[in-house]
Simulated assay, not measured.
Amino acid sequence: MDPSKIKEKIVRFRILIIGRANAGKTTILKRVCNTRENPEIFNSAGEKIDVDVLKESRGRGEHDINNEMVFRKNPGFIFHDSRGFEAGGESEYDKVNTFIAARSEEGDIKDRIHTIWYCIPMDEASRAFTEAELKFFSRCDTGSIPVIVIFTKFDALYDVAFARLRKEGKSRTDAKALAPKRAEEAFANGSQLKFLYHSKDIRRPPKCHVCLPDMDKDDADCGLLIERTAETLDSEALQQLFVSTQQTNLELCVRYAVERALEKFVVSDEKISSEDAITRLGRWFPHISIVRLLILVRARAMLIQAIAHCSQRGVSVLILVRARAMLIQAIAHCSQIVSVLILVRARAMLIQAIAHCSQRVSVLILVRARAMLIQAIAHCSQYNVTHVW
């Protein structure tokens, strides 16, 4: 599928989330969608289900995996929940297996499951693999759907590491500072991962895993989950849909715009108009509604890395300057607000980026760079910005 037609064909990214009760699934979904509100639930016909009716059915042990969870803050994601799967019974497993198989065979790609997140909590009472998990990873045929294991409540292992460090004679302050790293190292070499990836009983291991601690805190970060999910998708069309739908990791948008679009402009002999370049770059982050200073600062950091990488391959400074201007233009293209402060900062960043990859920056190059950036900014600005310079 042509990635340029992705929004028209697929519309929304669909995820199946599996896991035990109290595994922190809803908390993670709220983080991914950058919201504190509960999701709205829709049946397979697209009709909204009343919350009271839903509670009554759950109280009777009834749950339909075909129901769709959608958060108002980010309706670009559709989530399906395998509530009850943790019981480990054959009927629960059969429901999930049947759902995955049916969705895999859907003729319309928008109705397929695009990714599976399997949540396994790491608090003390839940560290061993359950019967349901063993069945899933040994028997369930997920086909080409990537499966990512999410070890939730990973901060519970910090407490274990802290206690061990204290026994080793570390002070409370040192033990607290060292506990996260010690826990991560112990887990990386522990029995859970060895069993998950190397056991003969696990015939269908996941694509990868992530460890998410402290998801209940205000500054919780699910960026690693977003990155790993994007990496496991084998279709650029799905990658573009996922990257442009998520709203918590701007760096990911910039990185994929650079790697998938900008780098092609730099190394290709294809003649591309500035309007086409803007469109192609902008497709990786269409969710941006306001360009703020922080966005350009983060974009600058990643683009300087790309520029440095390209400059080692003999790409001229002038081409890199033009590429830089195009990316800033693409970011601003999605914006409704461009402040004077941002424009001033953008100019400074451009000069810094050029200086980073060139030991001899001529006055002529800086003049031409300035002219191109003014063009880029003026293209998306609602007012005359020449006075800024």
Rank of each mutant, 00 (worst) to 15 (best):
D218I: 13
S339I: 06
R203F: 03
R172A: 14
S199M: 10
A330F: 01
D216F: 06
I295D: 15
G76H: 04
G19T: 11
A323G: 14
L366Y: 02
G314Y: 06
D123R: 12
I307A: 15
S362M: 02
S362R: 11
N38W: 10
T152L: 05
R172Q: 06
G19N: 09
H209D: 14
D234G: 04
D141T: 09
A220C: 02
Y383E: 04
R313H: 10
R368P: 00
V291W: 06
A325S: 13
F129E: 03
A323C: 15
A183N: 12
V266S: 07
S339R: 03
A332C: 12
S44L: 04
E92N: 15
E105P: 00
V321A: 09
I354Y: 01
V344H: 11
E131K: 14
L294Y: 13
E275T: 14
T245Y: 09
I307D: 10
R20K: 13
I272H: 13
R103C: 07
K176G: 00
V147M: 07
I65T: 03
L238Q: 06
N22E: 14
E37Y: 08
L29V: 08
A378I: 03
D81V: 00
F154S: 08
N97L: 01
K217T: 12
A183C: 06
E86G: 14
A332Q: 05
K153P: 06
G107C: 07
A132Q: 01
R172I: 12
E168R: 15
D64F: 01
L16D: 08
V367E: 11
I202G: 10
G107S: 05
G61Q: 09
D221E: 07
S289W: 02
N67A: 03
D155R: 05
V338E: 01
E90P: 01
S126D: 08
R166H: 03
K217G: 01
C380H: 15
K30N: 06
D174S: 10
K170E: 07
V267T: 12
I113S: 07
S91P: 00
G190W: 10
V267I: 07
I41E: 09
D141P: 05
G169K: 08
A299D: 06
V317M: 05
S91F: 12
R313L: 10
K194A: 13
E185C: 03
I41Q: 04
L252K: 08
D221G: 11
R345E: 13
T229L: 00
A325G: 12
V385A: 10
K176T: 10
L343H: 02
K110N: 11
L366N: 09
A330T: 01
